[in-house]
């Protein structure tokens, strides 16, 4: 419903302070998902954690890997040099750039350490649902 609380949740989760006010006021964090809107239609998009992740194929540094256990496609910001090949490779437009002195690529990491990703938890309308297995890790509905 385009409230964009998922983005708020994501930003806070991926901030240094992990405090909604402090993070926003001090850090200007970047959301790893994006709500797209066009008239009444809206939905959130983020990394699908593809079986065959084009971003990983394209990553020139080896910063992007796919965890064979969890299926999560991870991005190691330490290794990333910011060539943005992954951004060009991702057909979902789900990788973004961080702010700051040394910008790196940033993407959904399924919120390690959380039972439910922050975006899913933040969604007041259950438009974001965590789904397992064959389905994409986070599925989205037009209701978002």
């Amino acid at each position: 419903m385009a409230c964009r609380l998922c983005e708020v949740g994501c930003k806070v989760e991926h901030s240094e302070h992990k405090h909604v006010i402090k993070s926003f006021k001090r850090e200007k964090p970047v959301a790893r998902l994006l709500v797209e809107e066009s008239g009444p239609l809206s939905f959130a998009t983020q990394c699908r954690h593809c079986d065959e992740p084009a971003c990983m194929f394209g990553c020139i540094t080896g910063a992007i890997t796919k965890d064979p256990e969890t299926g999560i496609v991870n991005l190691n910001a330490e290794k990333c040099i910011g060539c943005w090949t992954c951004i060009l490779m991702c057909p979902y437009g789900s990788i973004t750039r961080t702010n700051g002195a040394r910008p790196t690529a940033a993407k959904c990491d399924m919120c390690p350490g959380r039972e439910v990703p922050a975006c899913v938890e933040a969604c007041p309308n259950r438009a974001l649902v965590l789904m397992e297995d064959e389905e994409p890790a986070v599925a989205l509905e037009d209701a978002a």
Binding site: C3, R4, L5, E7, V20, I21, K25
Partner: peptide
């Protein structure tokens, strides 16, 4: 305003 983070959720809602 100490709490407002300009996320604009109120505006959209």
């Amino acid at each position: 305003y100490d709490k407002c983070i300009n996320c604009r959720v109120c505006e959209r809602q």
